[in-house]
Amino acid sequence: MRNKLGTISLLVVGFLAISIPLFAHHGNASYDTEKTVTVKGAVTEYIWANPHVFVKVDAKDESGETSHWVIEAQNIVAQSTLGWTNTMFKPGDQVVIDVTPVKNGRTIGRFRGRIVINGQEFKPLR
């Protein structure tokens, strides 16, 4: 299958002990948890809501083609515990985000660690 993921770095990292997020209301059934995709692009929208906080990113590849990514986190309480806020992402922010992609090839993912916002790596609170 040729899809838009092809031109974005796609790393198969094998089965990792992926920590189960706080208040994981929704599980991994639709996610390919063995893969990491690095999404680089510009934030277009940030939704700070339950059941899931999520961010939309337009990722442009070398050929200039844009793919519209939607990347979900957990709920507001869980994210705020990690130091996230409702102003953490703004439209236009340049981001690099490691995601676990969905199995069906859509440009949908789940945050799985590295987040860089305008060149600054975000360090979650512990």
Binding site: S30, A49, E72, V102, N104
Partner: peptide
């Protein structure tokens, strides 16, 4: 509903 529209439904849509 927004979550299902943007993430839930397309996550289980047919591949491709």
């Amino acid at each position: 509903a927004q979550y299902n529209n943007d993430i839930g439904d397309p996550s289980v849509a047919p591949e491709g």
